[in-house]
Simulated scan of single mutants.
Amino acid sequence: MKSILIVIAVTVFALAFALFAGAGSVEVYGVNAFLDCAFVALAVNWLAFIPAAIAQSDKYYDSVGAITYLSVTGFAVYAAWSALGTLDARAIVLAAMVALWCIRLGTFLYIRIKAKGGSDSRFEKIKTRPTRFLVAWTLQALWVILTASAALIAITTTDPHPIGVWFWIGAAVWVAGITIEAVADAQKSKFKSDPENDGDFIDVGLWKWSRHPNYFGEITLWTGILIMAIPVLSGLSWLAVISPLFVTLLLTKISGINLQEKQAQERWGDDPAYREYRRNTPALFPKPPKS
């Protein structure tokens, strides 16, 4: 019963957020397009949950997350095109940015989970309990709705604005963010694939500057998207500022740094080299390493 109540609460929150934040969005089928996007996100994850629960498998969880981003972005583009008859440059670029990010990250996560045998330790205790497993899929839909909110609101706005300085500043921030995230992921994959590094912690490349540079990159790129959306935000659509704030909260306090730091402490906490690395390297915001 507790899990069902959580699913209901998360669903109500997601739809209420989309209803209010999308007040300035075009309408499709008599509903603001951002709210329609929220319905799409929930539907994709609930449908994916059914075979996953039957098979008691989390193998495609991250892949469905990427599909959800693509689905809601595609629907937002469709909604804007249907209502306005055209798409402005900001909407086109934002849609392409979200698609590029989720395809890159989704592919990376799929390859990583496949290399681990198709199982994620996060779901070991819940995938055999359908209602608790459903909570995870519903939360993934909420994750997409909140994270992509700035992009979706800007794409579906009824009042597009010409490209200006905010667009270019945000685009530069986004490019920096996705570059940092992609490079950090590639460096870690290369490090782990080397048998000589078996059992060691990574402290090379960007990982010399930050213990979690990939997370810093992700926070940065969503901040860039919010900056690009600023000119079209007004009234309740300013709720879109939750996008990078939510990503930061998620990656630092819920399912990112806190969990990985705990695992690292358990694994290397007695290693003097790791303790030195931890003392001299910030958890998130990069800092040049000491010579």
Rank of each mutant, 00 (worst) to 15 (best):
Y69V: 03
W101F: 07
A95F: 08
A79M: 10
M97Y: 08
Y78N: 06
W81L: 15
I111N: 14
W81S: 13
G106R: 06
V98G: 07
G117S: 04
R90L: 02
V98T: 03
A115V: 08
Y78T: 09
W81H: 13
A91P: 11
G106E: 00
G117L: 11
L105A: 04
A89R: 12
A96I: 13
T73M: 05
L94D: 09
K125H: 12
F123T: 01
S71A: 14
F123L: 03
D120Y: 09
L109V: 11
G117I: 09
T73F: 08
G85L: 09
A80G: 00
S121N: 03
K127N: 13
T86S: 13
I103E: 00
T107V: 14
Y69H: 06
V98I: 15
L100H: 03
W101G: 02
D120M: 03
A80N: 02
L87N: 06
W101Y: 07
T107L: 15
G85S: 06
R122G: 10
R104V: 04
S121V: 10
L84Q: 15
A99N: 11
Y69W: 15
F108M: 04
K125I: 04
L100N: 02
L94S: 09
T128A: 12
Y69P: 12
R104K: 07
I126A: 09
V72N: 04
V93Y: 11
S119E: 15
S121C: 00
F75Q: 00
R104G: 06
F123Y: 13
L84H: 06
F75N: 00
D88V: 06
T107M: 14
F75K: 00
K116E: 12
K114A: 15
I103V: 15
V77G: 00
A115W: 06
K127G: 01
G85Q: 11
C102H: 14
R122E: 10
A96D: 02
F75C: 04
D120H: 03
S119G: 09
K127M: 13
Y78G: 07
R90P: 13
V93Q: 05
V98Q: 04
F123N: 10
I92S: 13
A96F: 02
R122A: 12
S71M: 10
I111K: 13
L94C: 06
G106Q: 09
S71N: 03
G118P: 03
A115G: 10
A115D: 11
D120V: 06
G85N: 02
Y110R: 12
K127I: 08
Y110I: 07
G106N: 07
K125L: 09
G106I: 01
K114C: 08
K116M: 14
A79L: 04
A80T: 05
L94A: 04
L94M: 15
L100F: 12
A79Y: 11
V72I: 13
G106D: 00
A115F: 07
S121M: 08
A95I: 08
R122N: 07
Y110H: 14
